[in-house]
Design a binder for these strands. Structure first.
Length: 135
DNA sequence: AGCCTTTGACCAGCG
DNA sequence: TCGCTGGTCAAAGGC
């Protein structure tokens, strides 16, 4: 499931160049295009934030022992902003989990640290990344 | 049959 | 105190 399936349906535009980062997280249907970050996320909501004029998708880590969350904002499939909130108490699904010795103490390591960072995908002008609230 | 995705409604917090 | 926005949960549908 978490495997990177290069399944590309024949529809939409032919801009497969974006395929490098934007993977189809759906199970064979085009629903939402998200970049694979190495973790398994479960979407639990989506709303249109009029404040920023963009859609915001709410994702949560599928791991029961992981409280990491992710928010995806996009106005266009080309402009996607991923906001990671919280830290994973486990290693990425695509990485070696044998080094995830922190799982023994999920409440005294990464799980205790609140990590939050934003990631941009597509054509995001750095000039407006810090100043695009509203005119 | 099971899992995931999507949409709507409800609740909480802030102005 | 009322209204609005943001966030989360639950239910239904589809693959």
């Amino acid at each position: 499931m978490s495997e990177v399936s290069p399944t590309r349906e024949t529809s939409m535009e032919t801009e497969e160049d974006k395929e490098e980062q934007q993977q189809h997280t759906d199970r064979g249907r085009r629903r939402l295009v998200l970049p694979e970050d190495g973790f398994e996320w479960k979407k639990y909501g989506q709303k249109f934030i009029k404040n920023i004029g963009k859609f915001r998708g709410y994702f949560r880590c599928q791991k029961r022992n992981c409280m990491a969350k992710k928010r995806a904002e996009w106005s266009n499939p080309e402009n996607l902003r991923i906001v990671y909130e919280g830290s994973h108490s486990h290693a990425s699904s695509t990485q070696d989990s044998s080094s995830a010795s922190s799982q023994g103490t999920p409440s005294s390591s990464a799980a205790n640290q609140y990590n939050l960072y934003t990631q941009f995908f597509g054509n995001q002008p750095a000039s407006s990344t810090h100043d695009q609230d509203h005119t």
